[in-house]
Design a protein around this nucleic acid. Structure first.
Length: 466
RNA sequence: GCUCUCAUCGUCUAGCCCGGUCUAGGACGUCGCCCUCUCACGGCGAAAACAGGGGUUCGAAUCCCCUUGAGAGCACCA
């Protein structure tokens, strides 16, 4: 490792779809790597075999790609590193810095309840600390399984967090926590804290940027580092993303999955911009920026300490903004529709009216099929049935006598100026769209073509009784 | 319950470290006006916050303490 080289990582566990909070943690890590010229790693934390699933891992990979976060090609999977973890656990066991514990889950639960009742901190009693070699052998021989606990010395652990400053923990409130499970004397399965420490060490991670929910985990991981005589990385704990009730956004809710936003038609640039603003702010009042612009200015110091409520309205605003900045051809690609002249005209007509891609079909449905609508809708608020009919008749006549679009357009515009724009344009627009709200009539005509437009105007006249 | 963390408009936040320039700035949202055939876009404008109480100081959103509130962690999950 080069001296002073920055190495950060994102370490999601594939026990659910790529969470919006994980995406933001990834973003801040990525931003930091970009800013410092450091390396960004992805690590899959799938030590929990029961809950980890391949489809979730794939979702995470896809999400990273969608967001445009590139990472180093070496992706660690904890499920493949059991032997390495075992080596370290054994080292701890041999050094008497960790021990086997055979306490049953029931016993542990009971102890915890008692401690709770007595208003005591919930920590393991240390009962199995002094089990003799013989006793341990015997239990294993009988087929008993154990967990491995680290022997926690009584001390104060102080670490400096890049966002929160100095944080202190007293280890008496931590106790001997488990670092491995299912030990039968020969094999064992490493648990989260151990795996994290080992992996961060072996990949030379220099700065751990993660969610605030890990703040209280940090002293435990430091304890493992010290027992193993490993260097301590720096830490930066990000505030959490909250729901409207100010509780942590949970994976249990579908709307927290990044892929849901992608499916709904949000753009990655909008998502990145939004997630950045959720806890970080530049020096000036600028709020819309590219990844490169943010990275250039990004500093951990400007990260907010308090949790931020996820504001879907602002996300929509940002998305609408980015949607409008796209060209018609780009949008056709995003919408996965053919780049035809027709489609581009449709896109141009509704572009500034949609805030997610998924609205496109709703906004443009009337092009393909004129919806049923009440005849009264054709009458402008300041007008009446007679005038409306007269104007529609005139438009129909214009369609008959002009066989190219620009001629027809000019004739209609001239007529509208003479008769009053609302008197002409409103009924025409409703005749063409059937809707209260839609793009302008000329825009619609352009997509529909003269023949179809004439059809729809005739239909309107019929509905009105002309 | 124990431990830790946090606290400016409804929401995201600027300002706080280095007290006065803060009658507290911006953005989303809301409301109004303009533009306008409708909706949207765009433009202009309005309402809207320093959690409370004590200090320190000539002076506090900014520094200190307490209270209150909120959140997270306390697994043989990650």
């Amino acid at each position: 490792m080069k001296q002073g080289e920055v190495r950060v990582r994102i370490a999601p566990s594939p026990t659910g779809y790529f969470h919006i909070g994980t995406a933001r943690t990834a973003l801040f890590n990525y931003l930091y790597a970009l800013k410092t010229g450091g390396k960004f790693y992805l690590r899959i934390e799938d030590t929990d075999k029961e809950r980890s699933e391949k489809k979730y891992e794939e979702d995470i990979l896809e999400g990273m790609k969608w967001l445009g976060f590139t990472y180093e090609p070496e992706v660690l999977r904890q499920s493949e590193r059991g032997e390495i973890y075992g080596k370290y656990v054994r080292k701890l066991l041999e050094a008497k810095k960790a021990y086997y514990c055979f306490c049953s889950k029931e016993l542990l639960d009971k102890e915890r309840e008692e401690q709770m009742a007595k208003k005591m901190p919930q920590v393991y009693s240390g009962r199995c600390r002094n089990l003799s070699e013989g006793e341990i052998e015997e239990k294993f021989a009988k087929g008993e399984r154990a967990v491995v606990r680290i022997m926690t010395p009584l001390m104060e652990i102080t670490f400096s967090d890049a966002i929160r400053g100095e944080v202190k923990f007293d280890t008496q409130y931590i106790g001997d926590f488990a670092i491995a499970k299912n030990a039968d004397g020969k094999t064992l399965e490493a648990l989260y804290h151990l795996a994290v420490v080992i992996d961060d060490y072996e990949t030379n991670i220099t700065l751990v940027i993660r969610g605030e929910d890990h703040l209280a985990n940090t002293p435990k991981q430091i304890l493992i580092q010290e027992a193993l005589d490993l260097p301590r990385p720096e830490y930066a704990h990000l505030p959490l993303i909250l729901d409207e009730k100010r509780a942590k956004l949970s994976k249990r809710f579908a709307a927290t999955a990044l892929s849901d936003y992608r499916k709904e038609g949000y753009l990655p640039e909008a998502m990145r911009n939004f997630l950045t603003l959720l806890g970080w702010h530049p020096v000036d009042d600028k709020e819309i920026f590219t990844l490169e612009e943010i990275a250039a200015e990004f500093t951990l110091e400007r990260i907010q300490k308090g949790g931020a409520i996820f504001d879907g309205k602002k996300l929509r605003f940002l998305n609408a903004h980015y949607l409008r900045s796209k060209s018609d051809v780009e949008l056709a690609g995003l919408l996965e529709i053919e780049v035809t002249e027709q489609n581009c005209k449709k896109i141009a007509a509704v572009k500034e009216r949609m805030d997610t891609l998924s609205q496109f079909s709703i906004l443009t449905d009337f092009f393909d099929a004129l919806p049923e609508y009440p005849a009264e809708r054709l009458i402008w608020k300041k007008s009446d049935k007679e005038t409306t009919g007269k104007n529609l008749l005139k438009i129909s006549e214009i369609f008959n006598t002009n066989n190219n679009f620009s001629q027809a357009k000019m004739a209609i515009e001239t007529y509208a100026e003479e008769e009053g724009r609302g008197e002409v344009l409103w009924p025409l627009r409703v005749a063409l769209s059937g809707k209260e709200a839609s793009p302008g009539p000329i825009e619609i005509m352009e997509v529909l073509g003269l023949a179809e437009s004439q059809e729809r105007v005739k239909k309107a006249l019929k509905n009105l009784g002309f």
